[in-house]
Design a protein around this nucleic acid. Structure first.
Lengths: 358, 358
DNA sequence: TTGAAAGCGCTAACAG
DNA sequence: CTGTTAGCGCTTTCAA
């Protein structure tokens, strides 16, 4: 049934195995009549090429390894979906490995994937520093793209959202809505998302209020921290001292903040606006729905897929490429003095905004 | 570097390739001294076996295909994580394919995975009926386990939660909390989760209130339907006619219901309790947090992994196995007349409750 | 206990 | 344009 080989097809169509191979691969011109006979035989016998044999001989498995820190991080399922779509469209299969936020496990998975002869790797590194060695070693062997998170400069090609641009969208929007007493609820740590978003806030918020860049609370990227931050920010200040907008470094923080604010009886968005970042599904489900920055997930995935190709023969050649895609603002009920959500005033930008080699 | 082959190791350790192969595979006894030399050479040269060549020769890739309907369904990331853990622990790699709820795409992915010579398949079928042919065809070629959802009787081995047991836990809990006017908010369709949960509700609710089994609203497994259901159930009835508990067929519905209830000013859980099913992360984030039925995700994954092995040589042999695992109740604030969450009164059951061949 | 040899199914030179 | 011939790197008979 499925044990039909190239030889069987060759015999059935009265030509040699190489000819059949050529017809199937289109690697070289083949006579029209022969090609037709071959195709007929393929059809008749129900021939299916054996990818393992093909991989052994051609030194290409058509398989990409995807290593991520935690598939349960609510931002990743969408990214994984888009990435698999992009790769499958290109006839490439995806080997998945979840390393549970552990750089050791991550290193193990990376080397297991290399042993399995993946053509390339997409890695969302678990840790800015501790992932570096394994990633660098792998990047020396196969094309490797860092997705969503960085891993130090020059380690590998990378694709991520333009965090600074996203934060600027938020600040513009809040300014337009008349918010002035901003406060940033972010995450400590050196991971690119944490650092870049915070820096962008500090750089941009001063235009609204000289005090704003100093109002920064740092925890981690969790709902729990969002709640805790509100306890600190809201409870410990007199009403007049409270911010009129909480700029959260991601949606989870925003959702936690929102929850606690409601429990404390604060009026969102009347009294205080709340913004997030990422646009995970939860952002739209919160009550009120969270104004946030939507990452161009499909485009990030597509760019990653594209980068995997563009390391032709000389894998080591060329500078590392670092691609940043512009996000777009999604305005929902958690900001806006008025009523429900309205359309974003910033035009969506789905194509690369900056593409720089470093 | 990575181009070290068995031959190199053989040469370096002064023996034949077959001996080296035996040492590495442990397939046959090898002299202690020789074995030591071989291992040393492996170490020195940094030899890494080529899985592709191994697969071609041994007709086993050590790779499992995982096909699912939508990785963005919030219940699946955890399942995927546990399944990959279980399989990786066993040195098996996982090829992932998301079919976007489309049985056509699903069939395509299944056959692509078979072409890639996966050793076995884990399929979460996209559709009870339309997935059948492709699944049955694949099951005839490799070991195949249906996970979470069924696909008609006798098609393949399957592993899923015991929906009836889960619903019974909910009903018991609500009864103990003194709820009597129950209403079920479920999903239409024949998918096992939808049908079994509804049937179990209808079978069990009568003990509390003869009217309860008749109070059933059917939509789909979404937040939107949860909201819409409350609009129907709550708005269209006089206060005295309203249910004192909404039994939702999954957590998404429960979250939607909760949202709308709050918007309508209803008191949850004082006036009405709300329960979910699955225990997705969102259930704990909702406000109030949702009492729900936790699926034994790790155990489901482990059982699936186990079933993949147990089809020894004669793949066709033996009856289809259908494994159902007992879930456990997680009590949170959305039920309970009193205050916060307390520990479940039903004992957790993580081992197979029923294992039946059909 | 070990080695030699024969392939797994396919692609890629190399000749015609 | 097509066929012949080598292998890809490994496992597994079959002999010794």
């Amino acid at each position: 049934m499925a044990d039909v080989t190239l030889h069987d097809v060759a015999r059935a169509s009265g030509c040699s195995v190489s000819t059949v191979s050529r017809v199937l691969a289109g690697s070289r011109p083949v006579g029209a009549a022969t090609a037709a006979r071959v195709r007929q035989a393929v059809e008749d016998l129900g021939y299916r090429p054996n990818h393992v044999a093909r991989a052994l001989r051609s030194r290409s498995t058509g398989t990409i390894g995807l290593v991520l820190p935690q598939i349960t991080n609510p931002f990743y399922p969408t990214l994984v979906r888009e990435l698999t779509y992009a790769l499958h469209a290109d006839e490439r299969a995806v080997l998945l490995a979840d390393c549970d936020d552990d750089p050791k496990a991550e290193a193990g998975h990376i080397s297991a994937l290399l042993d399995r002869q993946v053509d390339a790797l997409v890695v969302i590194p678990a840790h800015e520093q501790h992932s570096r060695t394994a990633v660098a070693a792998a990047a020396a062997r196969v094309p490797l793209v860092l997705l969503d998170r960085g891993c130090g400069p020059g380690v590998a090609d990378s694709v991520a959202v333009d965090n600074a641009a996203g934060m600027a969208l938020v600040l513009d929007h809040l300014a337009a809505e008349g918010r002035r007493r901003l406060c940033f609820v972010g995450a400590s740590g050196t991971a690119s998302a944490a650092a870049e978003r915070r820096t962008a806030y500090e750089a941009g918020a001063g235009a609204l209020d000289p005090e704003a860049p100093g109002r920064v609370a740092l925890g981690d990227f969790s709902v729990a921290w969002g709640r805790a931050a509100v306890d600190r920010i809201w409870t410990e200040r007199a009403a007049a001292q409270r911010p009129d907008a909480l700029v959260c470094a991601n949606d989870l923080i925003a959702v936690g903040a929102l929850q606690r604010l409601r429990q404390l009886g604060a009026d969102v968005p009347g009294e205080v606006a709340v913004t997030g970042f990422d646009d995970i599904p939860l952002a739209d489900l919160a009550d009120p729905a969270v104004t946030t920055v939507r990452q161009p997930v499909a485009e990030l995935a597509a760019e990653a897929a594209r980068l995997l190709d563009r390391r032709p023969v000389s894998e080591q050649a060329g500078p590392r490429r670092s691609i940043r895609l512009a996000p777009r603002l999604v305005v929902r009920a958690s900001t806006g003095r008025s009523s429900a959500s309205h359309t974003p005033k910033s035009a969506p930008a789905t194509r690369p905004e900056t593409e720089s080699a470093q």
